[in-house]
Amino acid sequence: MFERQLFEGESVRLTAYDPDKDAEVESKWTEDSDYLHAINERPAYPLSAHLIKKKHEERVKEAEKNRLFFWAVRKKDDDRLIGWARLSDFEWTHGAGTVALAVAAAADRNHGFGSDAMRLTLRFAFDELNLHRLRCTLPAYNEGGMRLAQRYGFVEEVRRREALWLNGGRYDEVWLGLLHKDVVYA
């Protein structure tokens, strides 16, 4: 039936998040403010494993209502947790959703793991959820994220000028968009 497994990439796999094991690791990530600034616009703030677990309970609730799909991204060779991927903010009547993902530790970036996870997440969005389009929100200074999204066919759709204020500077928030028909499985 399926051409290939939905959750098996070349170097990573999308798996269930296990708060008992993963919360410690995720908590460690939040001690890196560069990581926090790259993933969202909220003030950088480290979260204990306890708080991460509580946050995960919210994710589970959202997932139960079909408002969120959230995966732990693990390396295939040693099963180590290196990041996460999510689909959310669905407008089911219009076939629209939002994608976000992160490879958290600097040492794990630039190995193709993020790209591998993106391919799986997009395939799930378009071939499993049958979405018409996806959005991806990035701060303008996250150039690596921008390049990754563009390789898969995302184009800049909205530039919210000076929407971010960080270290005394104003930065744009960029929304990239991808139509199902334009996806390139790079």
Binding site: E91, V158, R160, L179
Partner: peptide, 23 residues
């Protein structure tokens, strides 16, 4: 400031959602 292409489906046709901003 841009538009989300084909972000809405209305009566079988796709519409864009336009974003505007003022500083």
């Amino acid at each position: 400031e841009g538009r989300l292409r084909q972000a809405m489906l209305r009566d079988g046709a796709r519409l864009d959602i336009i974003y505007m901003g003022i500083l």
